[in-house]
Amino acid sequence: MLELTLYGTLGCHLCDAALAELAPLANTVSIRQVDIADSEALMARYQLRIPVLQRSDTGAELDWPFDLPQLMDWLADHLREEG
């Protein structure tokens, strides 16, 4: 199963919206949430971009805003492999 990392922070309503967009893919991907407030390096990198999704297989990142069709396109190669 492909792991996606969702970079965000507590109280981020956009991060909650991103999780809602990911819900239909729950059987296809696993989601690891990382709070950027726990790391100065992550804050410097993602502070103005959250929420951001990152693929574990390629390292590719997808910045908000995104919706389910965009997620499906971004994950198309993985979804084809899963059949």
Rank of each mutant, 00 (worst) to 15 (best):
L10Q: 05
D77E: 13
A23G: 01
V52W: 03
A41F: 03
D73Y: 10
A44Q: 08
L19M: 01
Y7H: 06
T5N: 13
A37D: 14
L79F: 15
A60C: 15
F66D: 03
L48Q: 09
P51N: 06
L6S: 00
E21R: 04
L68Y: 10
E81C: 09
H78G: 14
E21G: 01
D67S: 13
R45W: 03
H13N: 01
T9D: 00
D35C: 05
H13E: 07
E40Q: 11
R32P: 12
L22G: 02
L71Y: 04
L2M: 14
Q54M: 15
A60Q: 12
Y7T: 11
T58E: 08
A60D: 14
N27H: 00
L75E: 06
P51F: 04
D57I: 06
R49V: 05
A44L: 10
E40S: 14
M1W: 00
T5M: 05
L4E: 07
R80Y: 06
W74A: 07
R45S: 14
D16Y: 01
L71V: 03
Q70A: 14
S39L: 11
M43V: 14
A18L: 02
L4K: 10
E40M: 12
E81L: 15
E82L: 15
P51H: 06
D63E: 12
L48F: 08
G83M: 06
I31G: 02
A41I: 13
P65H: 10
V29F: 03
Y46I: 05
T5P: 13
M72P: 03
G11L: 02
L25M: 04
L19H: 03
E61K: 09
V34I: 14
H13G: 03
P51V: 00
L75M: 07
L53T: 01
C15W: 07
Q47D: 12
Q47R: 13
A17R: 02
P65T: 07
L75T: 08
E82P: 02
A76N: 13
W64N: 02
L68V: 08
H13L: 06
E81F: 06
L71W: 01
L79N: 05
L48W: 13
L68A: 09
M72L: 15
L6E: 01
L2N: 03
Q33C: 10
L10C: 04
E61S: 08
R45T: 12
D35L: 04
V52K: 02
M1I: 12
E21V: 01
A18E: 01
A18V: 04
Y46F: 11
L19A: 03
Y7W: 11
N27V: 10
V52M: 11
M43Q: 14
L53I: 04
H78P: 02
